[in-house]
Design a protein around this nucleic acid. Sequence first.
DNA 1: TAGGCACTTCTACAAAGTAGAGTCAGATGG
DNA 2: CCATCTGACTCTACTTTGTAGAAGTGCCTA
Lengths: 107, 107
Amino acid sequence: MPKGDYLGEFEQIILLAVLRLEQDAYGMEVRREIEARTGRDASIGAVYATLDRLETKGLVRSQELAAEGDRGRPRRLYKVTANGARALERTQEAIASMWEGVKVRGV
Amino acid sequence: MPKGDYLGEFEQIILLAVLRLEQDAYGMEVRREIEARTGRDASIGAVYATLDRLETKGLVRSQELAAEGDRGRPRRLYKVTANGARALERTQEAIASMWEGVKVRGV
DNA sequence: TAGGCACTTCTACAAAGTAGAGTCAGATGG
DNA sequence: CCATCTGACTCTACTTTGTAGAAGTGCCTA
């Protein structure tokens, strides 16, 4: 059974947002995606700090993209690494195995 | 959409273990359940500290149970409160909504 | 009465979560 | 052209969670 570490709750959310956004995964957009999907109003600082930490752990990697025609400064595009995907799976499996057969009220 | 706070990763695991164990949810057993289900070898200190914090937040409540015929000191039995159940649902829903339609490798 | 077992408490520190002010680069417009 | 608006990212600082392991408690047994 899995050894190694698990992702924090917000780390999972961020990683999933990056996965969903594919070519569009930069900080501000990640934040918007989370807001759109879950209604959770994460502060921009929280998002970037978490992306940073995930990058340090090798779970995402990023590349700066010069602003083409766009306004403002260049954006930093994120992508989930293979390790990131694995960590996501591992974490989700652990939680799923705890949910198995559990009923909490109507669910 | 949900406002309010979300459970940490380990908090979810602990809460689920307490739910599963029903009448048997005391510290050491919670730890064993997690080990059995997920293979995760949580330290006993981690388990109790988390149960404590969940109790402070009103997500579980506990009662001391005198050891009847059993050996050792009395055990402290935990139960998930209605708020605890709600927090669990909220957190799980948020993560599920982020997973929706996402494919990570074979999954 | 020294140890051992089953459990809980305590202490201390590392990692994750969070907010918000600050900075950067262009766009707008008075 | 300077003020300020917008979209984006960086930094700083602090709180909450996660984690380990030693210490304490109460009973049991050699």
